[in-house]
Simulated assay, not measured.
Amino acid sequence: MTAEESGRADDAELIRRSERTPEAFADLFDRHAPALRRYVARRLGPSLADDIVSDAFLTAFRRRHRYDADHLDARPWLYGITARLISRHRRMEVRFYRARVRSGIDEIAEPYADRVDDRVAAQQAGLAAALAELSYGYREVLLLVAWADMSYEDVARALDIPIGTVRSRLHRARARTRQALGGANPMAIGKESFDG
């Protein structure tokens, strides 16, 4: 059964439909904006998330005629656009992580938990410090895999880099982050402490 037969069009179909009926693009926004907003908020803080996501969808809408309809899932395309917008705020992202280290408070997780215990707060600070020290390219790959649950293939498509580069950057990012965390698994800490 296809997505359309089940009553839910795939992303490529929504994008094609939006070329004739621009309002159809709103369905793509409704489908993906919440996850993109959470991703951006984790990276840059909640204050910029809405603006970045709005800019990402505006860019996607303007470029929709160039979308490769062979890809039924638009997530990698949308995360790629979002990654380029986030890259304009690299310094702010590093400052955001360093502020987490200093305060010991994760602005993203706190609203979802009454209190973060000392162990998790220390892990958050350690992860934030490790993320601040990673180069942008390594951090981007690591967080797309960890926080956006993207496959290597999707990350390669999102960032327009070879899959071998994704694997290499991810391996190095994990190793550097693990070393900064005293041997702890950065993927486990990232999900535990930043997902709330």
Rank of each mutant, 00 (worst) to 15 (best):
A9V: 08
A12Q: 09
E13R: 13
I15W: 06
R16F: 03
S18T: 04
E19N: 11
R20L: 11
T21N: 11
T21D: 12
P22R: 03
A24H: 07
A24F: 02
A26Y: 03
A26L: 09
D27V: 12
L28K: 05
D30G: 12
R31C: 05
H32N: 10
A33P: 02
A33M: 03
P34G: 00
A35N: 03
A35T: 14
A35Y: 07
L36F: 06
R37L: 09
R38A: 12
R38E: 10
Y39R: 04
Y39P: 00
Y39N: 05
A41Q: 04
R43S: 14
G45Y: 07
S47F: 07
L48C: 04
L48N: 03
A49P: 09
D50F: 01
I52K: 05
V53K: 00
D55I: 02
D55P: 00
D55K: 15
D55H: 13
F57R: 01
L58Q: 14
L58R: 15
L58N: 15
T59D: 11
F61Q: 08
R62S: 13
R66L: 12
D68E: 09
A69K: 09
A69L: 14
D70T: 14
H71A: 12
L72K: 07
R75I: 02
R75M: 00
R75D: 00
I81V: 15
I81H: 08
A83L: 04
A83V: 06
L85G: 06
R91L: 14
R91E: 15
E93L: 02
F96K: 10
R100C: 13
V101G: 07
R102I: 04
S103L: 05
G104P: 02
G104W: 01
D106T: 09
D106Y: 08
E107S: 11
E110M: 08
P111K: 07
P111M: 04
Y112V: 12
A113G: 12
A113Y: 13
